[in-house]
């Protein structure tokens, strides 16, 4: 098929001899049928896909959230807001919201500071910068499943041969079951170090791009005024990284709030599933509700509550930072 030939009004490819005068018409683009044809051809597949997998999915699921739908995705058994009531009064769900809030409050500042620190370090080093950047970024190629395996079975293995326990033994500490310890909740260390290792390089790249966007003469002017070290960082570097910081914070928040993979793989066991896990995220709860109990009504309600939470926080964050941007 000659993909280059313009289509006739009927939508069929025009025969080879004709394009010349057709092209002359197209020189002044009008909203004609040929433009429509090309638009449909190029954007159509994407629009149909988004329509089916986003709009139809969300619409159907919203109706399911108002129905009793156990073991079926058929509509018809309307129960109003009962699913939402069940969900919000379930202690396990509310607890999972609290846990994910804690997790987010832990992981977002730590990753933010870590990735900014790494970027500042890598940015200032001249020799070997590319090697360093690769070393910090390459964990981003590792899946949460593989990282969970490494953290659970090697680094934080409860046996004395686990790496953390071995290092602890040099300082006279006895072996600790890191993942199973709830008093104190040592599993947080496992969760936070793992996500940090996996993600910090990704956000470092964002900060590095931001740092490269700061013009040199801004620094030179400030240096002439006698500003150095920390003052340069506070007065120039950080304000100039404002937009990057806002983007990084939003991406981190959205990612942390949807945490699932590491919680599933660190805590679940073949016999009890995630039943004995010390901590459940909302997504783990939703997974158990929709896939375990096959309660698609309740699962849909959960998807809407969580989406509303994420969209709400993102909008608030965008509004606050949007106001800030006008000020300077």
């Amino acid at each position: 098929m000659s993909t280059a030939s313009p289509t006739r009004p009927g939508g069929l490819p025009s025969p080879p001899g004709r394009p010349a005068n057709k092209a002359a018409e197209a020189r002044r683009p009008r909203a004609d049928r040929r433009a429509w044809g090309a638009f449909a051809l190029l954007a159509g597949p994407m629009l149909i896909g988004l329509g089916v997998f986003k709009y139809v999915a969300i619409g159907w699921s919203f109706l399911l959230s108002l129905s009793e739908a156990r073991g079926t995705i058929a509509l018809g058994h309307w129960v109003g807001l009962a699913n939402y009531q069940t969900l919000l009064s379930a202690a396990a769900f509310r607890d999972s919201l609290l846990q994910i809030l804690l997790f987010t409050l832990f992981i977002v500042p730590v990753t933010f500071a870590g990735s900014l620190g790494l970027a500042l370090l890598v940015h200032r080093i001249r020799r070997g910068r590319a090697v360093l950047r690769t070393a910090f970024l390459i964990p981003a190629a590792v899946s949460y499943v593989a990282a969970s395996l490494l953290w659970k079975m090697c680094l934080f293995n409860g046996l004395p041969s686990g790496i953390a326990n071995m290092i602890g033994s040099w300082f006279g500490m006895s072996a600790v079951p890191w993942i199973q310890s709830t008093h104190p909740p040592l599993y947080w260390i496992v969760l936070v170090t793992m996500r940090l290792w996996l993600q910090v390089g990704f956000y470092m790249v964002l900060f590095l791009a931001g740092l490269q966007g700061i013009p040199r003469d801004v620094y030179e002017a400030a240096a002439l005024d006698g500003a150095t070290g920390l003052r340069l960082l506070r007065r120039i570097t950080l304000p100039m990284l404002r937009n990057t910081s806002v983007a990084v914070l939003m991406l981190q928040f959205i990612a942390a709030f949807q945490a699932f993979d590491e919680f599933y793989n660190l805590f679940s066991s073949g016999l009890s599933g995630t039943g004995t896990a010390p901590v459940q995220t909302p997504l783990v709860y939703l997974y158990n509700t929709a896939m375990g109990d096959q309660d698609y009504g309740l699962g849909s309600a959960g998807a809407f509550v969580l989406t509303a939470l994420i969209v709400g926080v993102t909008l608030i964050q965008g509004r606050i930072t949007g106001f800030g941007r006008n000020e300077g």
């Binding site: 699921s61 949807q258 849909s300 959960g302 993102t314």
Partner: peptide, 20 residues
Amino acid sequence: LVVATLMIPGSVTFVPTFVV
């Protein structure tokens, strides 16, 4: 319409996607 779908967080909507 395309931009609006950006607001929908990816993983959370696995139930709606599963239904379709």
